[in-house]
Amino acid sequence: MSIRTFTAPDPETLVNGAQPPKKRRQLRRAGESYGFLAPTLILLLVLMIVPIVMVVGYSFQDNVILKSSSEFTGIANYVTVLTDPGFWKATGNTLYFCLISVAAHLVLGLTFAMLLNSRLISAPSRAFFRALYVLPWLFTAAVIAVLWRMLLSPNGIVNFLLDTDVEWLASPQLALGTVTFINIWAGYPFFMVSLLAGLQGIPQDLHEAASIDGASPVQRFWNVTIPQLRPIIVSLLLLDLIWTSQQFALIWLTTGGGPIDVTEMLSTYTYKLAFANYDFSLAATSAVLVLLLSMVLAVLYVRHQKARD
């Protein structure tokens, strides 16, 4: 791939190149970008927006899906959900679960990525550790759940090694912390691998220049590494917040939202509405509320992107 050929700008064009009027140029480029976006847009419109619009529709009716006699009920479902203490309990738990998980994912992911990127360690050892570190990534949520249930059971290996008999998952005091820990274990490789790829993109000479200027490794980290990784970190945080907020299988299969309601999340709450109470209207309502929350996040993200440009 002859990058060099392309990277060398032609000064002639740069200076004299026909610069079309700004507006027309934008229009033209707009047409082009729609072309690039067309496959995405069509796919998302048909297979994502349509079902979502249907779900939004359900949230304004009652007796949807299985009964034929559904009626428009305005915001009644929203009132029901928003006045249910269970919903707020689930929201609180979800916030705790998400914020701790995401923060830990970032710290662990970045730490591991930096360690794995360290030039102090030989390449084969790095490759070996990289393989070990991605392991939690390779398993489906159901397996992660049964594995940790096994490890953390009162008679399990963890209690054996710690010489305790703690009910990690069954104790109302510990359960939320425990499922959060499991989620941290299961999710950090996403950050690690993405950041590892990002670290490769930081030009080595930026570090060298900083070193020559007398920057300590810590200063280089905060002044070179972090700013360079920022776009990726922001994307990662946003995605992880959204994904963690809808983590279902892991919670459902470890605690089922219990003991009592200490690990009830918005996802398990919604699931129970849909498949235990068969109230799809309320489930849809709860889903729409989650969607609205994430739209706030998304708007903030886009603002951030624009500010950065």
Binding site: L44, L239, F280, S286, V290, S294, Y301
Partner: peptide, 19 residues
């Protein structure tokens, strides 16, 4: 579009299942 693409992921898949 950006907002849409980001936030559509937030709908719990379990509620999308039926439609």
């Amino acid at each position: 579009l950006n907002v849409v693409i980001i936030s559509v992921q937030a709908v719990p898949p379990i509620t999308l299942l039926i439609p």
